[in-house]
Simulated scan of single mutants.
Amino acid sequence: MFESDEHLKLQDNVIDEVKKLGFAKHTFSEVILTIKYEDIVNLAPIGVLLLGSNLYCKIYSNSKIYRFFKKGIRDCVLNITDDPIMFYNAIFEKRKVALAPSSLVTSPRVKECVAYVECRVDYTEDRRECMDVFMNPIFAESIKSYPGTYKRAGPAIIEALIIYTKIEHFKTVDRVKAEHFFEKIKTFREIVYHSSTKKEYRQTIDEILKMSEAILRS
């Protein structure tokens, strides 16, 4: 059965909105993913690509998100923010993350993000060490209507968090790479201290460095 012209037009409109939000084929967009299984909600920072009409992400097998997808999650939300503290809380302080109902899917949104993309999970490919997840965006909404200036500290913290999530996996499969990740987090700490005197930012990057070293040396 062929999809109706109206359905295809609606899908094209959503893809156009997704592109406007910055999702692209060759560069990962870092978002906070929220998913729900029965009454349990989980969330995590994740990198996403736009591949044709699908959004794609890779989930490592040592993560809780991976175990959720193994159970057959059918939808999710990509929550877009440039606030590094929200990314930090999505990993270390999940209880501090405020949630809100979504428009078309069962997985909730993270409150106070600047944009949202609600998705249905098209299919997954389990490759043992990781899982490829292909999502069909069905609704996109932008809350923030004005641009902000670029600040180095926030992106540096987000990059450090992304690298932190990979250390656990690579310390067993590629120790040299895990050590390299740790050194990069040190560099990001220098960037934060050089570009911001904000106490919360400095405490956050210090905590990321401390926990990264603990994982690496355990």
Rank of each mutant, 00 (worst) to 15 (best):
M1P: 02
F2R: 12
F2L: 10
E3S: 13
S4M: 07
S4T: 15
E6Q: 12
E6I: 09
E6D: 08
L10K: 15
L10N: 15
D12W: 08
I15R: 05
D16P: 00
D16S: 15
E17V: 08
V18G: 08
K19R: 11
K20G: 00
K20C: 03
G22M: 10
G22W: 02
K25V: 05
H26Q: 09
L33Y: 02
K36S: 15
K36F: 13
D39T: 14
D39L: 11
N42A: 15
N42S: 12
I46A: 00
L50Y: 00
S53I: 03
N54Q: 03
C57R: 06
I59Q: 05
I59F: 01
I59S: 00
I59C: 06
N62G: 03
N62F: 12
N62T: 13
Y66G: 01
R67W: 01
F68H: 08
F69P: 11
G72C: 09
R74Q: 08
C76N: 07
V77G: 05
T81P: 07
D82S: 11
D83M: 08
D83W: 05
F87H: 04
Y88I: 02
N89Q: 08
A90P: 08
A90C: 02
E93S: 13
V97K: 04
V97R: 06
L99I: 15
A100S: 14
S102P: 05
L104F: 06
L104A: 06
T106Y: 09
T106V: 04
S107P: 03
C113Y: 06
C113G: 02
V117D: 00
V117A: 01
E118G: 11
C119S: 09
R120S: 04
D126K: 09
E129M: 13
C130S: 15
V133T: 02
N136K: 08
I143Q: 14
S145F: 14
Y146C: 03
P147S: 11
G148C: 15
Y150E: 04
Y150R: 11
K151V: 14
G154C: 04
P155C: 14
I158M: 00
E159R: 14
L161Q: 10
I162M: 03
I162F: 01
I163L: 12
T165C: 06
I167S: 01
E168M: 09
E168H: 15
F170I: 07
F170N: 03
R175K: 11
R175F: 02
H180T: 10
E183D: 10
T187F: 15
T187V: 11
T187R: 13
F188W: 08
E190H: 12
I191E: 07
S195K: 06
Y201V: 01
T204H: 09
T204W: 11
I205D: 00
K210N: 00
M211P: 02
M211Q: 07
S212E: 05
R217N: 11
R217S: 12
R217A: 14
S218G: 06
